[in-house]
Structure formats: C-alpha cells, structure tokens
Design a protein around this nucleic acid. Structure first.
Lengths: 182, 182
DNA sequence: CGTCGCATTGATATCGCTCAAATCCGGTGG
DNA sequence: CCACCGGATTTGAGCGATATCAATGCGACG
C-alpha cells in the first residue's frame, strides 16, 4: 500500500500498536525518541531503498516516533501480511533474515562510532565505514546538522572538526562530498 | 557442539571466515574491535542465555573479535547447519527472526543511550531501559569498569557519577545492585 | 604473602557544549 | 524581479564536564 508523506509529517507514534512496517521509495524518515529535556534523539535515519520499523513487527507497540524529514513516498506493509509471508514464502524469509542481520551490523557499527571519544575519530570512523573507494568518499545525506546528530555531536563541533581535519590535510570537502585527502 | 573457553581466550578473530554462530550457556563473551590507538571498543557483551555472531551468518567474514571475559561454556552452531535449519524448520525461522529483531531493538536502545551527552543521563537511561520493577533495579553484570565502557565513559567518570547521584538521593547502591531511590 | 586488577577519590587539562553573531542560500510572496 | 524569511553554515569566546594522570586501598588468586 502506497503512502505519501509531507516533510515533518508523523508516520507513527511511540506507544501505538505496531500495525505495519514500511519501505522508503523516495525521501527520508527519522526514527526518534525524546530525552528528559525534550531533545530529539535520532535512532535511525531511513533513506530511499531502506525498510524501517522492521524490528517492531514482533513487538506489540512502536517504541519510537517516525517522522518524515522530507516529502516521501512510502510502501506500507501490514504486520499480518508480513508475518504470513514469513511463514509461507521461504525465499522472502531468507531475505528478511538477511535484512535484519545487515541492519544489526550497521547499528553495531554506529555503536562503535559513538564509543569513540573524540570528534575527529568519529568523523574518520564514519568515512572508513560508510565511504566508498580507496579514499572513502561519502556523499553526505541530508544536512551537516543531521550528520552531526548521527555522530553524537553538536553541529558546531562537527563544522570545527571538519575544518580542522581539512586544514591538517587529512580530508577533503566538496560541498556535501567528503573523502580522505590523497 | 559444546566448546569450553578460559577467561581471555579468543573464540574467533576479525577477518576469519564465518564458520559458526554461538550460544552462551554460562560465562560471558565480549565482541570487540580496536580503535586507531589500539583501545578496545566493546560492540556487544553476550552473557548466559544469549546468542552471538548471529548477524555474521550471512556475511563472509567476522567483523570483530570474540573474547571470553570469563571461563565460559559455549554451544557452537556451524553456519551450514543453521542455514539449513532456517530453510527447513519454519518454527525455528520464526524464532530466529524474533531473536534478530530483539537484538536490533536492544542495540538501538544502546545507540540512544550513547547519544545522551551527560554521564548522569546515560546512567538514568541505563536504569530505565535495563532495570526491573518500579525502582528499575539492576544487578550489574561484570565489573563497573565493564559497565563504564558499555556506557561510553571512563570508569572514573562512572564512579564519580554514581557517587554524585547517590549523594543527591537519586539512586541507591548495594554492591553491584543499582536502583532509583524510593 | 606478593601481585594484579578493580574500586575510589584528587588534581589538572582539554575537548566539546553553550551562547552569540554573521553570512549564505533556497524558497515564498508581493 | 526583488525583498524577505527561516534554516543551514560558519566562526568566536568562555565554561563546564569528562578525560587523563596519579595515588591509595582492597580483595582475589596463585
């Protein structure tokens, strides 16, 4: 079932029953919880080509909010249909297990990144683990502010760190593209 | 297949082919990677009753080291056997999907925790999400040093934060048991 | 009984957070 | 077409929390 979302629109809220998982055809959706001071904590940033809420399927209620960060086209998969597919379609089940395992590895990598204590180490780790090619080139998705939050930094700290690393000749920056200096 | 490990023994190393997943019957196993300065980063701490390396199954090589933190009894499941089980045993496949989804939620919770910027907020979050009962009681597994690392703090910072929270009457401490003050 | 690692606390340095301000850029409405 | 507006970007100054280094006590284990 296709769903359209405007930027800022809520797809589902924490605490409501888990009726569906979703696939992002285009756009982007943030999964967020809120800290005691009301600050937004981004659990995951699902972009085009990714599923989200796939881990909520076997839990009774969503445990975070899903908010579209841009106008997005989503595919909605009712939980019942997915569970049935899992039981009947062997190949789909195989794919699904692979999907969950890949997500798990990705989130573990993010845990590793957040365990690093310095901003520059986090940026290096981001390039090493997300970058493509020998120079670990990355086209940053969303804004640098978004990237800062996903690195567990304030945007000011990220800008300063990028500027310092560039000045030191460690990385290069072309607009939203980052890579290690050759 | 049953395997015995002494404390400090390596179960598998990063980069070697993924021959097996494991189940911890007793003891504990740390999944670790190493930062540029050689410091240990703990990706996961598998304790009695948990699987580990379950996400490596559909990847060609392990992406971290597994080290027993105490003498442990493990059950080893060869990848081929598991893949076959997944394909033939519908109920096992269902369980496996549930297991992966639960792990995914747990790791996301840890990401949320590491995104909090103050030590006391991380401790509170730890109690809220891992604690049992109305006071969020937790029996800390392993040493406080281990806990500190899993919270992304130095052990000194953790000791000081616990002391402060106790002094402020926010939490209580009985040896390895932590809970919110009544 | 010596040694090793955890637990605990002190002193100091440093890095990143906070507040602040200026610029840029895309979009919007007149 | 242009002025305006909001949010992203960028840099500065200062402060505070946490890392780091250091020292001590303590219990476990050989």
């Amino acid at each position: 079932m296709q769903v359209h979302c405007e930027a800022g629109e809520t797809v589902f809220r924490s605490g409501t029953p888990t009726h569906s998982a979703f696939y992002v055809e285009s756009g982007a959706v943030r999964l967020v919880r809120y800290g005691r001071a009301g600050e937004e904590v981004v659990l995951h940033d699902a972009r085009a080509g990714e599923f989200f809420a796939e881990a909520s399927l076997d839990s009774a209620r969503y445990h975070c909010d899903a908010v579209a960060s841009e106008a997005s086209e989503l595919l909605q998969f009712p939980a019942t249909a997915l569970r049935q597919l899992l039981d009947t379609d062997r190949d789909f089940a195989r794919q699904w297990v692979g999907l969950l395992a890949r997500q798990l590895r990705a989130v573990r990598t993010r845990v590793e990144r957040l365990s690093l204590k310095s901003a520059s180490e986090r940026v290096r780790h981001f390039l090493v683990s997300e970058g493509r090619g020998p120079r670990c080139e990355v086209k940053v998705q969303g804004t640098f502010k978004d990237l800062a939050r996903s690195l567990g930094l304030t945007h000011e700290a990220l800008y300063r760190t990028l500027a310092t690393l560039e000045r030191e000749g460690v990385i290069e920056r072309d607009g939203m593209v980052l890579r290690f200096a050759g």
